[in-house]
């Protein structure tokens, strides 16, 4: 009998109701991952434009907002799909509750996506001047072409809080103590740099080697610091008893242990070394491989970090 094997001070739950398991699942992981790409390409793109001439990265002006647009729409789609009442999303705009990071984030992300859409249209029509040459809408969009450069600094500035607000949602999720750490804010930032540089690497085939070297540098720095932060959080941090209990379960080979380490090796360690080597000798294929690995590994790491604190019974 199990009762004979336990300490007299220990307690066993002998009757309880069924409890909810993982409430925020893969859709939220995908949501965060896609948002990292959406804001990351803007942040890394701005860095590249600061460092290099536009001619060195001929397709950046329209591909950057296009990637951001696709990623942000994936993010918004899964935000909506995860709601049990998707049409009531409108309540966030009709009845906003400003203490909620979900509300603030929804407003900022909507504004950000709107501006990205404008940039994408301007960039696209400018890149292909013969496309819909006589169309009135295309003409008027081409007419506001300088607007792109005017709003770009504001979009870059806005990308920062849009990247970070998910960390505030996690901080407000006070039942999940693993997320109650300032490290989450920086983890979101590194994720954006990782995802942004990876996504841009995939379209950098015709760019100058110097620009690609900068992308490799950003990827190497982001994977290194993000990995270090995960290791610090995973092994060395002094956390609350609930967070410790969550991590102890995973340490002991519990659920998501394998996914976590796969994510760390695939998404952080291997891409780091490939990126460092690409800074010395330009190897487009290898760098693209690193970018894909980083995106896959980032998804896995985010997935584990999202789910593990939800396995803890709260009451």
């Amino acid at each position: 009998m199990v009762e004979h094997g336990i300490n007299a001070t220990q307690a066993i739950v002998t009757l309880d109701v069924a409890l909810p398991g993982i409430i925020w699942g893969w859709m939220i992981t995908l949501n965060m991952w896609a948002k990292s790409i959406g804001t990351g390409v803007i942040l890394v793109g701005a860095f590249l434009l600061y460092r290099h001439k536009k001619e060195e990265m001929p397709n950046l002006r329209w591909m950057m907002p296009l990637i951001a647009f696709i990623a942000l729409n994936v993010f918004l789609l899964f935000t909506l799909t995860d709601l049990h009442h998707p049409y009531r999303m409108v309540n966030i705009f009709l009845h906003p509750h400003w203490t909620s990071a979900i509300t603030v984030g929804a407003w900022m992300a909507s504004l950000f996506t709107g501006l990205i859409t404008v940039m994408m249209l301007i960039g696209g029509f400018d890149a292909y001047p013969d496309f819909r040459k006589n169309c009135g809408i295309a003409k008027s969009i081409r007419g506001i072409s300088p607007f792109y450069e005017k709003i770009f600094p504001f979009v870059v500035f806005l990308a920062i809080p849009v990247t970070l607000y998910t960390a505030i949602i996690m901080a407000e999720s006070s039942a999940r103590e693993l997320w109650q750490a300032p490290a989450e804010v920086m983890q979101m930032m590194w994720a954006a740099f990782m995802a942004g540089s990876s996504a841009l690497i995939l379209i950098s085939n015709k760019w100058s080697a110097e620009a690609r070297k900068d992308l490799a540098l950003v990827l190497a720095i982001a994977t290194f610091f993000s990995f270090m932060m995960y290791m610090g959080e995973y092994f060395f941090s002094f956390k609350s008893s609930e967070a410790e209990a969550t991590l102890a379960f995973v340490h002991a080979g519990g659920a998501y242990n394998t996914e976590f380490w796969f994510g760390m090796v695939l998404g952080f360690i291997i891409p780091f070394f490939i990126a460092v080597s690409s800074m010395k000798s330009d190897n487009k294929t290898l760098l693209r491989f690193a970018a894909i690995l980083a995106l896959v590994g980032l998804y896995m790491a985010k997935d584990v970090w999202l789910k593990i604190p939800q396995m803890l019974n709260l009451s």
Binding site: I23, L83, E172, S174, A175, R176, Q310, S315
Partner: peptide
């Protein structure tokens, strides 16, 4: 709206 944010926030 069924976002389940409250379920994530309630420590109890």
């Amino acid at each position: 709206i069924g976002c389940a944010g409250c379920m994530m926030a309630c420590p109890y």
